[in-house]
Design a protein around this nucleic acid. Sequence first.
DNA 1: GGCCAGGACACCA
DNA 2: TGGTGTCATGGC
Length: 218
Amino acid sequence: MSQFITIYRQLFDHYGPRDWWPAETPFEVVIGAILTQNTNWNNVEKAISNLKAADSLTSGVISTLPREELEELIRPSGFFRQKAERLQLFSNYLADRYQNDLDRMLQRPLEELRQELLSMKGIGPETADSILLYAGRRPSFVVDAYTLRLFSRLGLLTGRENYDQIRQLFMSQLEQDVALYNEYHALIVIHCKDFCRKKPLCPDCPIRDICLYIKENS
DNA sequence: GGCCAGGACACCA
DNA sequence: TGGTGTCATGGC
């Protein structure tokens, strides 16, 4: 059995289903994906809460809101100037190209949609894949810094692979399953928030045994 | 008071 | 192509 499946099962058995993304609508997923760039999720929640309180969590409102007002609403998420620009660029694009119909955009062929997202300023590979997977329910594996850290320590990555190489590796080792991709990325994040931080193998890591085994046999 | 967080981009060699 | 600086808030 693939070691990638083994790790997944260990994480799932310990943490249980995460059922990401914590959002009420696909558009809220997109906004959260941009706001969480290099940012603690607690800060993102404050910004999203502000947007909801101002009745501004729609592409129509965001694209017409004065930049300064948007910046103030999302200030708690950090990098608020560049993120305000990114939110408006996406919202403007959605309005111009899809008449604010996000579902229609998300129904495009997967790779075409991925390239379309990547062509937008402020949407890199992780944000694009988060949007594809969690807003569009499309099978596109999300790679992040935690993924690189955990799997490098297990010897399954060298640390020199680029984003697309890691994504392709996971997608070649796993069935194309939206639910699996959804849970796997979420479990990696949840796990690495508490473990796999400074020490190569944390003494109290809940999946320590399998980590040691894989590390010795990879 | 320093470190880190669910990155992306401009700039440079 | 790869390395580095920048963007900014809030919790621990």
